[in-house]
């Protein structure tokens, strides 16, 4: 097993608040890794630190053993890391097809002036990338809604569009920020299958999720954080039995489900 992604002692503060505190963990290639923790534990901040939205105050982020700490978001994307957002961020003025097509951006080899001049090689590439986009849409069952405005779709479908947008890039690692949020039970169950399907394509998955059903059933490895610090790490069985985790969760289980 190789370490695809590794965080070493990463910290980030906002104002006086330590959102992430000396956090270290690794994501093995081919695994599905879950990052869990109570609300406000700093999970989304961790994602933002990995994907270059925030720059860590301290510590290192490594990709295949090479340091990428503080790389810009587009540079992180170029490594083959794709993410979804907790609050879905689809392009509101675009169709489902156009949204998913956006995910293929880095695989376009055309230069800007070739596009502006409309040269034949560029036109051929356009057709090829459009066909690949349609193939991904078909695979995720989105072919029927391809020409609909993306943000007009039901929530579950929007999540799937966002997922399709990451998959079309052919990434090495997909980071899912609460993929089950807002899904009904049937959709949530289907999501498990989708995540396994992604892993079976050879894509590593790192996910933040509140839905314990999803987390416990799909992950190979779980990292638990609270107040920005890692409090436990291991497989689903070990995490379930870990007293620190039980305390962090059960002590405040009541407010956990209702939160966004």
């Amino acid at each position: 097993m190789t370490r695809l992604l590794e965080l070493r002692g990463v910290s980030k503060s906002f104002g006086g608040l330590r959102a992430v505190d000396d956090l270290s963990f690794a994501v093995e290639e081919g695994h599905i890794v879950g990052l869990i923790g109570p609300n406000g534990a700093g999970k989304s901040t961790v994602f933002n630190l990995i994907t270059g939205v925030y720059r860590p105050d301290a510590g290192q982020v490594l990709w295949r053993g090479r340091e990428i700490t503080g790389a810009a978001p587009h540079a992180v994307a170029a490594l083959g890391i794709r993410r979804t957002f907790q609050t879905i961020r689809l392009f509101g003025e675009m169709t489902v097809f156009e949204n998913v097509r956006a995910g293929i951006h880095l695989r376009a080899r055309q230069r800007w002036w070739q596009g502006v001049l409309g040269l034949p090689a560029q036109r051929r590439e356009e057709e090829r990338l459009a066909a690949e986009t349609r193939a991904v849409l078909a695979r995720l069952g989105l072919a029927d809604v391809a020409d609909k405005p993306a943000t007009g779709l039901p929530y579950g479908l929007q999540r799937r569009v966002e997922l399709a947008r990451t998959l079309v890039a052919g990434p090495a690692l997909i980071i899912l920020d609460e993929p089950a949020a807002g899904l009904n039970e049937a959709e949530s169950a289907a999501l498990n299958e989708t995540i396994f399907g992604i892993r079976d394509q050879g894509i590593t998955v790192l996910l933040v999720e509140h839905d314990m059903n999803v987390v416990m059933n799909v992950t190979d490895h779980i990292v638990v954080i609270n107040f920005g610090r890692k409090i436990a790490e291991g497989n689903a069985g070990a995490i379930r039995a870990d007293p620190a985790v039980v305390e962090a969760y059960l002590g405040r289980a009541g407010d956990e489900e209702a939160a966004p």
Partner: peptide
């Protein structure tokens, strides 16, 4: 932000 995470410089 979404554009940047898709790889747009």
């Amino acid at each position: 932000l979404a554009a940047a995470t898709l790889g747009v410089d």
